[in-house]
Design a protein around this nucleic acid. Structure first.
Lengths: 245, 245
DNA sequence: GAGTACGAAATCGTATACGAAAACTATCGC
DNA sequence: GCGATAGTTTTCGTATACGATTTCGTACTC
């Protein structure tokens, strides 16, 4: 729903048990602050892939010491947004096409599962909302607004998987999206032809969900939807030199 | 030199060559050391769920300062092996049955995918090895050796998914197994009936792979294999502790 | 006797400091 | 002119120190 907010906040659901009222104090530690700040800059493209993340420099920018910054960077490394090299430093990760492939493949699997698990919990109101978003995406195609299209695309899929009852899977989906966000902002271009197909597939997905289709069927469709995006990228990527397999 | 515009570093942008995933040229940092040590103690059960991980204490035990220990703990938290509470401390995670369910469900998905992706790369030698392991597991059933059975079970599945060409997925599988290891060592008991079925399913899986079955079919079988284990746990859990709060 | 207030102890969070490793630059030898 | 080498600089890795927060124990009041 909320662009950066949702992207930056898949945290809470991680390992929280049901322990009721605990730690109401979200005073925001320096470490959290640094984590959120750096992550936001990576996802929104301020720090693009290859950007060198110097601890001392970031610490100064944020007005904290290097210790919390280091912690934040290591956390981002664990999420795959940052590449860390011993005694050398951290850089924003993501230019490698191989990594893109890995990420997309992984996302197709976990997102497919998340969507299938969500499906039974998706109500008419959700479908209506998704449909509205998809309509806006169609407009973006006509007016050629790739940036907005991309943002709406995330909103659309959020509706599909946000009800996933398994927080672990949901977290994996969020991580995948975050990685893609950092990648997309630089290397990987918008492919109009694919975008057009994508909108049509969205509608098909919604119909499938409305029809109360089985989990297997929904999972398969969601997977294929993403695989198709990957294939489009590969085709474009190979178009110049190599022959498409 | 002026590093203010270090965005496009000279050789930094060259990305990774093929340095795999480890740091062979170095000597093992304190942080890595602490991470490995604590993780090992959690997985092998020395630190069982609920155990309080006091930074200063662990630091002293390992002969390092608290900083690397803290980093190690946070990493373990990200992997779900440790629960961390602000200004309070860290404890070994894992007793919650709900978390067990989440973990198993997630693992069924990623492990199924990893197995399916591995299948085409599994050769006769691998199958033979897996079969030998499975035979040993059968022996363990007769002599009732749950500990060894569990270890062999991991060996068996390792053969199935270790060839997975997508390192991200493989990593997720490993994380799942680690979580289970920490859980299994305490709360979750060995279920003989289920173990017997499990061995039979292993053989069926091997036959499926030998037959060159499609990825979908293998994935489904691998998923069901794990789901069955989960179901067995749930059945036992419901039977044993009726209305256990 | 139960509940509350206060204080001591334990533990975490973060700042600062310094040694170590790597990268960069300049110099030397051929 | 080019490659190897030593010195300098940058940046990380970790130890230590101290303030902040929570927890636990004790005494006090009703």
């Amino acid at each position: 729903m909320h662009d950066t907010a949702s992207a930056a906040g898949p945290r809470a659901a991680a390992t929280t048990t049901r322990t009721a009222t605990q730690t109401p104090p979200h005073t925001a530690s320096k470490s959290e602050q640094a984590y959120a700040a750096v992550k936001a800059r990576i996802v929104d493209g301020t720090y693009s892939p290859g950007y060198r993340l110097v601890l001392a420099k970031i610490a100064e920018d944020l007005g904290v010491s290097v210790v919390p910054v280091r912690e934040a960077i290591r956390r981002l490394e664990a999420e795959g947004l940052v590449k860390f090299e011993r005694n050398v430093g951290a850089t924003v990760a993501g230019i490698d096409p191989t990594e893109y492939l890995y990420t997309m493949q992984t996302l197709s699997i976990v997102e497919g599962a998340a969507t299938a698990l969500s499906a039974p919990l998706i109500g008419p109101a959700d479908v209506a909302r998704a449909r509205a978003v998809n309509a806006e995406m169609r407009d973006c195609l006509e007016h050629f607004d790739p940036v907005r299209f991309t943002a709406l695309n995330q909103d659309f899929h959020s509706v599909l998987f946000e009800h996933c009852p398994n927080p672990h899977i949901l977290d994996l989906v969020h991580r995948g999206w975050n990685r893609l966000a950092s990648l997309r902002s630089s290397t990987f271009r918008f492919v109009p032809g694919r975008a057009h197909d994508s909108v049509a597939e969205h509608e098909a997905l919604l119909r499938l969900i409305e029809s109360g289709a089985g989990a297997d069927e929904i999972e398969k469709a969601a997977r294929l939807h993403r695989s198709a995006t990957l294939d489009a990228y590969l085709a474009q990527s190979n178009a110049g030199s190599l022959s498409a397999h």
